[in-house]
Design a protein around this nucleic acid. Structure first.
Lengths: 142, 142, 142, 142
DNA sequence: TTTT
DNA sequence: TTTT
């Protein structure tokens, strides 16, 4: 049956992306993204709560992440929720929920000490830095 | 800093909602929602993968869930991602990622053997069944 | 600069799609989609307001529309807003705002007298009816 | 029937908001927001196309707009599509499609020569600048 | 671990 | 554990 599983995030990277190049030619970048919410508790004190999202960006988006994304950067991430099982060190089944990125756009200024420009030439700073994953590739098992 | 944490799901309920009425007058409904994705593996075989989302609907949305939502029902859920910590039976820290619902709409037909009409009268079947949480209440700590 | 232009609609088709096959091999399906909102006026009377969206579905999505979409059908449409200029019969510049579809999913039951099954064989009824446009094709001028 | 009419935009303001204070205590801010898309034409030339969205922000969001939004600012706008009729100077019926804002967040740096800080004191620069409309007020006729 |  |  048709269904929709869509996530839209705007937040800041908690660290530089970690990129792994997998056997078979695939690559994946992982990074964390902070979103914040604010509310008042019963005493009226303003509380800030940070949610840390685990982002997985595959193939073309992994390259974008490697070239352009740095700790502190503000980005738009569109993707879908995916929960993976794994065995922890005590051989117990654990679950981790990730956001599989389908589109990433760089927003605003580029703080954090790192340059947002790619090290390599060929991609001018005037270009908008947006990338959407090709859906059919995005559907490969991983 | 301003940020966005938005989830949009369309899927089917895996079971009837479980509603708890908390001390202090708050209530919360929990249910699971299935979304499906399809892809072809390297052999070209069509694979279906189901993602199970854990939905938490508070206060007014808990009442809506209790009255209208049943196993098998197709719904639209808009909300935000929230990861909670808890201690498991071995006193280890574990994490569970939920979707805190901010809007729920009933879609399509109402399968599953259960009547989608509320047990109580007063809410006619002709009404559109949509409900949006009041943001300020939605911000209470929980 | 990077930007986002995203529309998410769930509504019912006001009429069967009209499909045009253009010179150059392109095709486009046009249909209207109704969404409803409800509010109370100052006297407390419940008011219903219908918004009619003009949807344009290109290429692969036009084929999906032609095969599966019928008047009365409930659908999910994801796309982007685009305003086009044209000259009216008095040679005045006029504007029309459309939603260019990027993803369409069939929802719920299939009312409206028309069968939702395609006339042609080869696409079994068990398949989920969802289609996402290939982004690069979707970017062609039109 | 339940339906969804949702728009998510990230773009830059084309001009400072124009705020009108209406009889009855209501206020509305209007501004334009540019989003850009890029594609290659059949000759492979890179084309940029700008879409101008007409945003209407009511009541609390009008105040936010008046205090914080300036030409050139990058913002996130969430809202719904609404097409209004009006009579033009030749007494012909015309249509204009607007985005009625339901949430606005300021993004990134604050360019454009104008200070993004409010003229009035009392709202410190450390606050996140996000505002969501109260739904019930948002449903008033206009 | 981000941002203000 | 849903749906087709």
């Amino acid at each position: 049956m048709a269904s929709v599983n869509k996530v839209i995030l705007i937040g800041h990277l908690g660290k530089d992306p970690e990129v792994r190049h997998l056997e078979g030619g695939n690559s994946v970048a992982n990074f964390t993204l902070a979103t914040n919410e604010y509310y008042k508790d019963k005493q009226g004190t303003r509380i800030e709560r940070t949610e840390w999202h685990h982002i997985a960006a595959w193939r073309g988006l992994a390259e974008l992440a490697e070239k352009y994304l740095r700790k502190g950067q503000q980005v738009y991430v569109e993707g879908r929720i995916r929960t993976r099982q794994y065995q922890d060190k005590d051989n117990q089944t654990r679950y981790v929920t990730e956001i599989v990125a389908e589109e990433i756009s760089l927003l605003g200024s580029r703080p954090g000490g790192a340059t947002a420009q790619p090290a390599a030439a060929g991609s001018s700073a005037e270009e908008p830095v947006t990338f959407r994953q090709e859906p059919e590739l995005d559907q490969l098992p991983f």
